[in-house]
Simulated scan of single mutants.
Amino acid sequence: MGSAAGTSGEPVVVERADGAGGELVLRRAGDHYEIISNGVFLMDTRGGASERLLVRAAAAGLDGPARLLIGGLGVGFSLAEALTLPSVAHVTVVEREPKVIGWHAAELRPWSRGALDDPRVTVEHADLLDYLASPRGGRFDALCLDIDNGPQWTVTPGNARLYAAAGLDLLARRLTPRGTLAVWSANAAPAFETLLRGRFSRVHARPVPVPRGEPDVVYLAAGPRPASP
């Protein structure tokens, strides 16, 4: 753990730690926080429109009590949004980095709105692929993935497996018949969209404008096709 005062306007390192996927850094920049993995920017507490859309779009049309799984806690935008939806009865969050979970008891708590203390929330400290391959949790009405920077921009190489055919098979098995898979991406991922269309009967890509650069994209998939033998 370390800190640096920095000069005016420069981000300040709040904590530096060894994470499951390498070095993990929490920085403060003015009133906001940033998470850096292995020197690559992952996310910050500014905005959050696409992360909120990820959850709202996945849960759209669900009536009655719904069970959601969120892959990746991040800065908490997706989890906080899920708890505002009247149809959501329970949210399971799978996060492999204990430091990220810990930061939500302190620095990041305002952005997750204290959601980790909500009785409707279960936090699983695990790699999402390991969790999906285990018998834990059962099936879900919505699977919301905010892992790394998306299918085609993974900071941690092992995360690419989640967006490959075998990963999609695991995800499809965890959906209820009315369920939707929602995947956040920092950019368009045409190869991933092709994989989705081969595995699901209904696929939609929703661009989300951002202040700078190309839009974020939320991929929505439902109606799993039978897995290839």
Rank of each mutant, 00 (worst) to 15 (best):
G47I: 11
P207I: 07
G114Q: 02
A20I: 09
A182I: 13
G138I: 00
V203H: 09
S78M: 11
S87R: 04
D44I: 11
V40H: 12
I35F: 01
V155C: 12
F140Q: 02
A133Q: 11
L116A: 00
A49R: 15
Q152D: 14
G61Q: 09
P86G: 05
V121P: 02
D63W: 08
V121T: 05
E97T: 04
R202T: 15
L108F: 05
E193G: 04
P119V: 03
T154K: 02
G179E: 02
G21S: 13
D169R: 11
V217D: 11
L181S: 12
S78R: 11
G114W: 04
P226I: 06
E51Y: 06
V123P: 04
R199F: 10
P98C: 08
E15T: 11
V183K: 07
G21N: 12
H32S: 08
Y33C: 07
A165M: 04
M1N: 00
L171P: 08
I70L: 15
H32R: 02
L73Q: 05
S37C: 15
A227N: 00
E97L: 05
I36F: 02
T176P: 02
E95G: 01
L220Y: 05
D130S: 12
L145K: 10
G102N: 08
S134D: 03
P211H: 13
L83M: 03
P226Y: 01
P157G: 07
L143F: 04
G19F: 13
S228N: 10
P157F: 02
Q152A: 14
S185Q: 01
G9V: 05
A189R: 10
S3E: 14
L79S: 09
V218D: 06
G61H: 11
T92D: 06
G76T: 10
D18F: 11
G223F: 09
R109S: 11
F192L: 06
D31C: 01
S201Y: 00
I101Y: 08
A49E: 15
L170F: 08
R202H: 15
A186Y: 13
D127F: 11
A57S: 15
E107A: 13
A126V: 12
H125A: 15
L69W: 09
A80K: 04
G137K: 01
R113T: 01
R178N: 06
G213H: 08
P224R: 04
A126K: 07
A89Q: 13
A29E: 01
P207E: 10
G71I: 09
S37M: 15
G19P: 13
D117S: 13
L68G: 02
E34T: 05
T84S: 07
P86C: 04
F140Y: 15
A222Y: 07
R52P: 02
G64D: 12
E124F: 00
P65D: 14
S50G: 00
E97H: 05
P209Q: 06
L220V: 03
H90G: 04
D127C: 11
G2Q: 14
S112K: 05
